[in-house]
């Protein structure tokens, strides 16, 4: 079942002579539960693509459908609501709110939705992420790996339609990075969580079901590594 489809995505920065084509009429789709890695050199347009897919940036042209909804056709507030319910974003620098503790950061999208937190789900996810001892800590008191785990927990809490991760291991050492990737893979397998992951690390990219290579704003390779279900 198709969960994400983008059609002719184009993003142009600047005007006149200093126009930069970050994305050039890019189209692809992702199946539900698929783990897709996106690789490419710096400046190839990976992060721009992820921001557009996540609805935090707008394309110059083209459409993005998530679970059948054309997200950039939504009004600003509707898009924000869609984002907090259907999209989980994970960043290289965690993007946690420094004034909120671990629990509050994890529950934030849910709270923004005006709903009460499901304590059981929160406890489960905190335990799953190994953050039980750190629940009342602020991000400034956590290590990089712990912060990234909070960030993943936050993205997963609402069980979004799609998880978008922008170099989640880029700021971490190798072993912590591996730990984070295994957590993401586990989420993908356990909860059939669709995952799009940007990375520079070939080893991580090869752990995905499918790998997209982007260069100069275009998909240069779309390679299936293993079938949906895990067979190579």
């Amino acid at each position: 079942m198709e969960i994400l489809r983008c059609e002719n995505l184009t993003k142009i920065y600047g005007e006149g002579n200093i126009r930069t084509h970050a994305l050039k009429s890019l189209s692809f789709s992702v199946e539900k539960g698929e783990f897709v890695s996106i690789v490419g050199p710096s400046g190839s347009g990976k992060s721009t693509l992820l921001h557009i897919l996540g609805g935090v940036d707008k394309p110059t042209a083209g459409k993005v459908f998530i679970d059948g909804t054309e997200i950039h056709g939504l009004k600003e507030d509707k898009l924000a609501i869609f984002r907090r319910r259907q999209i989980g974003l994970i960043y290289q620098f965690y993007n946690l709110l420094p004034m909120l503790d671990v629990d509050e950061n994890i529950g934030l999208p849910h709270l923004l939705d005006g709903r009460k937190l499901d304590r059981e789900r929160l406890d489960n996810i905190v335990e799953h992420m190994g953050l039980v001892e750190r629940r009342r800590h602020l991000p400034g008191q956590l290590s990089g790996g712990q912060q990234q785990r909070v960030s993943i927990a936050r993205a997963l809490y609402n069980r979004p339609a799609i998880l978008l991760a922008d170099e989640p291991t880029g700021n971490l050492d190798r072993s912590t990075g591996a730990e984070i990737v295994s957590l993401l893979k586990e989420a993908n397998r356990t909860w059939k969580q669709t995952l799009l992951l940007i990375t520079h690390d070939e080893n991580i990219a090869l752990q995905a079901d499918r790998m997209l290579c982007i260069e100069d704003g275009e998909i240069t390779r779309d390679e299936r590594i293993r079938s949906l279900g895990g067979d190579e």
């Binding site: 609501i81 319910r85 974003l89 993007n95 999208p109 923004l112 939705d113």
Partner: peptide
């Protein structure tokens, strides 16, 4: 920006 990324409205 962080809030927007997790779905906070204006």
């Amino acid at each position: 920006a962080m809030l927007v990324s997790v779905g906070a409205t204006q």
